[in-house]
Design a protein around this nucleic acid. Structure first.
Lengths: 184, 184
DNA sequence: AATAGCATGTAATCGGTTACATGATTAT
DNA sequence: ATAATCATGTAACCGATTACATGCTATT
């Protein structure tokens, strides 16, 4: 549904090959729309077939050769159409909240440890976002593009902040079930 | 991945038929793990085959007849195992943030209207959660089960609060593109 | 008895995930 | 030269979504 449009956005920001797109999805784009390289290659094929993008003519299309793509006018038009179209929010699916509710029924044994792990992951993500904000959005710049992209980053920061706070609060319900000596 | 465990949790809270489960997923459970009735019926069949749940013996299993299920000990054990197991967070996929980033490239025309619609949806969801909190978690009760379930609800409230704030802030970037007279 | 809608399903499709394959490039 | 890794794919699977089918119940 949205993967082709994520790719169009990325290619408009900068024409890229499949691998470059994969790298960028691992970094910035994937922060709110993740994709694997298999998805990306398949979708690039479809987008080219549909006439929304094309391979940059300078490169030769042999297997194992880098092939870069750029967006055609039809692709830009499709992205503009999709961006403006009315779309319902996707149904929520959060495993952590589900497990918390399950724990209310079957007990909290073992869950605290994984909550602490998640807390650490969210703290790291938050720190990474804040680094990006410091680097890319210093105070006192404000082109329209910058403001929109900054908004997206702020959403990421605020979401990670929410999770770290919630997990910290939640962990008060969990006794320090120190992991035992185990089998080591 | 998580649907069977969502169903096990729901059935442990209260044995139910397929339709009752569907209703409950539309209400409380579905707030963090949505499912359609087709998914639910298929999964009930699998869970019964696997010996994790069973149909309540009192009811006859004819088509079009209500059939209620309860969780067997093996089902409870599986849910406890899954709840405690270490699980990585799922990759993020948010259409709204993606569209915002696309708008930075192709322009914001038309997007503001849908943002306002989303803002209204999130406000309503927030109001619903706050009603539930007032009704089910009055101040001064604190069984362990209550605290865990309250935590889950607080996550919902805080998430909806985040979205309403973020959307309100984001809309400052959008000129009042009043919908034209249209074709009416 | 006819109709509406309640309750339980089946089938087709589609996107995402995992596992595997293969040609090109780089390092030793 | 060989091995490791880079880069681009293909195939099989799996869960979720959408559309459709069928039997039962209540209303008129």
């Amino acid at each position: 549904m949205s993967l082709p449009h994520a790719i169009l956005t990325a290619l408009l920001e900068k024409p890229s090959s499949g691998l470059e797109l994969t790298r960028r999805f691992d970094k910035s784009i994937g922060y709110f729309w993740s994709a694997t390289h298999q998805q990306i290659y398949r979708e690039l094929g479809r987008l080219e077939t549909d006439g929304l993008i094309r391979a940059l003519p300078s490169e030769q299309p042999a297997r194992g050769q880098r092939k870069s793509y750029e967006v055609l006018p039809a692709g830009r038009a499709e992205l503009a159409r999709w961006t403006a179209a009315s779309q319902d929010p996707r149904p929520m699916r959060d495993t952590l909240l589900l497990r918390m509710r399950a724990a209310a029924v079957v007990g909290t044994a073992g869950l605290g440890q994984d909550l602490r792990r998640h807390l650490e992951l969210h703290r790291r993500q938050l720190a990474e976002y804040e680094e990006i904000e410091k680097r890319d959005f210093p105070p006192g710049r404000d082109s329209s593009q910058d403001r929109l992209r900054h908004l997206v980053l702020r959403a990421g920061i605020d979401l990670e902040t929410f999770w770290t706070r919630w997990l910290t609060h939640a962990l008060e319900e969990f006794p320090e079930d120190v992991p035992g000596p185990g089998t080591a």
